[in-house]
Design a binder for these strands. Structure first.
Lengths: 215, 215
DNA sequence: TCAAAATATGAATCTATTTTCATTTTTTAC
DNA sequence: GTAAAAAATGAAAATAGATTCATATTTTGA
């Protein structure tokens, strides 16, 4: 007997795993999942093609993991806002602005997560992602109904509508091309749209910063 | 010299072309574009695989044609309503109900057109389809603003939101599973959502039939 | 009936990736 | 230094499906 994995090697393996994920993430951020071919990922990670299969059982697994890493960050941020102990409509406003603002700041990545044509495996991950958005919206809407700030309605359906509306307006072929300036207008229009959809009309606009400090 | 295409043959060719498109359409209606493999289409059309290539230069072309045939029917119906000479909000209501009602009556097909994971060629066709929806909504919203029944806003952005919201609420993983009964509720919720989003709150609900007779 | 032209056929080929695996290199313990 | 085990390698194989094309069939006009 002669070889048993040492701490040193374990660390290098862990490091390699991270490099692979990082390489894949970068490629996705640059050109969507379409550019994340196994060979390209391996090359960028500085490893041989076959080596990737010692770390991930298949391309689907690797891409799913990338999707989850990126999307769960987003979901946690939104879930945190939704769970705060504040008036539902304030949380609604902030969730909308946070979601939209982040998407506009990383458009390519948002496109990959929300709108890029992907195969079935990634479409499944995307569904989780979008279902989570809908659940977050539905929860806040239910709270708003309970508070009496929104009249009763089918919160699940309304949440699905919003979860569909925002990505369409932000990324992909139906979204307007905007610079940083236009982004603010887009954001305000989306917020206005969503509040209106809930039947809330006379809400004064607060900036995201003001809302954040209030929470 | 001996052979030159006769009318009789020309008719059979035309007939074959139609059969191929019909077979493809049926497969798509049954299992989405994923089930429309060349061999499967040929088999259903009662032709050999190679024969299809005498009628369509590639699978992408065939699928695009199928997509266009089905989607242009829908677009024409909606465009007809949008162009009618009647109050904008009546047209808006009717377009929403027609779009949603038709999608719910042919869910599988609507899923293929609006939500199924497809490759880039079909994603392009889908983009046309969705852009047309947005354009129809935008036009009506502009009319409503001109009429004074809706306060000024970014009609393009609102239209994109609506074009994203409705498909999400109707088909695909975020849509509720509904029977014929529930369909009516879904439809009314969507209409309420969209009118609210335009800032129109106190509109009495009319049925689709009432609206149609009014136009 | 015949030959020329058009049309149909479907097994074989092509294509663009992912995935494998026999071989090489590295690591470890003695 | 050596041998056993692990890890890495990358060229070759596998895959799944679209596409081709040499061959067969059908159609036509004489």
């Amino acid at each position: 007997m002669a070889y048993r994995q040492t701490e040193h090697v374990a660390q290098r393996l862990e490091e390699n795993r991270r490099r692979i994920l990082k390489a894949a993430r970068e490629l996705v951020a640059e050109g969507g999942f379409a550019k994340a071919q196994i060979t390209a990922v391996a090359k960028r990670a500085g490893l041989a093609t076959g080596t990737l299969y010692r770390y991930f059982p298949s391309k689907d697994d690797l891409c799913r993991q990338v999707f989850r890493e990126v999307s769960s960050r987003e979901m946690n941020i939104l879930a945190g806002i939704a769970a705060a102990d504040h008036p539902a409509l304030d949380r609604f406003d902030l969730v909308l602005r946070t979601f939209s603002g982040r998407a506009l700041k990383s458009r390519r990545l948002a496109y990959a997560l929300l709108a890029e044509p992907v195969d079935v495996a990634l479409a499944e991950e995307r569904t989780r992602f979008r279902k989570t958005h809908a659940a977050i919206f539905a929860r806040i809407i239910d709270d708003a109904i309970a508070e009496g700030s929104v009249s009763p309605r089918d919160s699940k359906l309304v949440a699905a509508c919003i979860a569909g509306a925002i990505p369409t307006a932000l990324v992909g072929p139906l979204a307007p091309e905007t610079d940083a300036q236009g982004s603010d207008d887009v954001l305000n229009s989306i917020v206005q749209f969503c509040f209106g959809a809930l039947g809330v009309t006379a809400r004064q606009t607060a900036t995201k910063t003001q809302l954040e400090s209030r929470l």
